[in-house]
Design a protein around this nucleic acid. Structure first.
Lengths: 242, 242
DNA sequence: CGGCTGCTTGAATAGAGTCAATAAACGTGG
DNA sequence: CCACGTTTATTGACTCTATTCAAGCAGCCG
């Protein structure tokens, strides 16, 4: 029975028409596996295919002239990555775990938009959700303390993980080095370590062999200035499905 | 002769069909004027209309619990603002100068997507361009010095202004207080002042009665780690126009 | 077992923030 | 057009958060 991560994601919001569903399943016909650490594409590579992540976890980042890295986004199953606007990729995407991605052509994307305007609108909705997540991180980097940034990142990672795996509760494998956490939050690895220790000393989290357990969710949320943006979507305005 | 800021923006990339053009012009039928400082909508307001900015300059921001502000985006003519994904606005939008905006209903947006898939695709392209601009700012806040952030912001403001007004060359009215520059770059107003002075002392810029003049573009760009993202779009994959 | 890579902690440093005081520019009403 | 009050810009002195540098430790994999 063929399935589609992306359809599952969208379908959880809205019943899809059979035609919509089959078009989405068709996008994920092909599969490619990636080893942990493998690069999906690099900044300045010519733009080619788009990808839906179907299994695993990836990240995108940019490198600055001085060699420092800013992690832009963590990618979870059902997310789309790829370059639609530019001739060259603006960022690098690598697998953080072994992954399965489904590549498809931009022309297939064009066809999807033509034939299924409601899906086009849903993609716009998801773009806004992701844009808001980015602006939350911008506010985090621009205006909050190191401790708050780490707390926010932990909550975000837990929430995103839970979306694709309902098993995840308060304990989850962090899956990132402290250096990666630093490159995502604009801190040094050393300072990330100190902040994790501080959150642990304050009994907001516990850590053991690569897993983090949130033991005081309310306290961690308060420390993080966190707002959950995945709640309260409004899809009433969408065009009808075809 | 009716016109459309948004059509002008898109039309500069691609010849539009008469039908596309008239649909876009219809979106901008109504106009609303805003005084400098006026609020278009506030965070947590129920989502209502969308807006195309037709004249002036606006900004969007969020306020954190401690009262600090992060400016997320500066809005220029032809840009769209509004909430399509959420039941409540995630940010506040205010006019930085006297403005004219064209409000339209989300249902009109839905109709546009249905009838003009190529415009839907172009909006997705613009979303990615804006997303990349946001990630560049994320990298700026996360991984560059105060001086680099201010330099990058000056170049960005000049470039965006030039898009809507080809007259703008190296000299432009900054149109923001130093506090606003700070809230956009994650710095304090005091430190913004020092960085502007430093850029001036290094003969990269000049300042006089509210205007900034870039006198060493190459030097400023180097100081900023700046990448121009509005170059090299690739629109070959779009569906045909209707 | 040995060699990585990642984690942990301390001490010294630097970059940005805070506080405070003054000056300049702007707007508004008379 | 001027006077006055308010906002914005400027600068210095001091503080503090996060970085840098350095060293030791732990865990993992061949």
């Amino acid at each position: 029975m063929p399935s589609s991560c992306f359809a599952d994601r969208i379908g959880s919001l809205l019943p899809l028409t059979p035609s919509e569903r089959s078009s989405l399943i068709a996008l994920e016909e092909r599969e490619r596996t990636l080893r942990r650490g493998a690069t999906l594409y690099r900044a300045h590579d010519p733009a080619g295919e788009l990808f839906i992540l179907s299994k695993g976890m990836m990240m995108s980042y940019v490198l600055l002239d001085d060699g420092s890295r800013q992690i832009l986004r963590f990618v979870f199953p059902g997310d789309i990555v790829g370059t639609i606007a530019y001739a060259e990729a603006p960022e690098t995407v690598v697998a953080l775990t072994d992954c399965v991605v489904c590549p498809f052509e931009r022309s297939a994307f064009a066809t999807l938009i033509e034939e299924h305007p409601r899906i086009a609108a849903l993609i716009l909705v998801y773009n806004q959700v992701e844009r808001v997540a980015l602006t939350d991180r911008l506010a985090s980097l621009g205006r909050t303390s190191a401790k708050a940034r780490i707390a926010a990142m932990l909550i975000e990672l837990r929430n995103r993980r839970r979306q694709s795996d309902a098993e995840v509760q308060d304990s989850f494998p962090i899956g990132l080095t402290q250096e990666e956490l630093g490159d995502a939050t604009g801190l040094t690895a050393v300072h990330v370590n100190r902040m994790l220790r501080q959150l642990e000393d304050e009994r907001l989290i516990e850590r053991a062999n690569g897993r983090v357990t949130i033991i005081d969710e309310r306290g961690l949320t308060a420390a993080a200035n966190y707002v959950d943006r995945y709640a309260r979507l409004d899809l009433g305005w969408l065009p009808p499905g075809r």
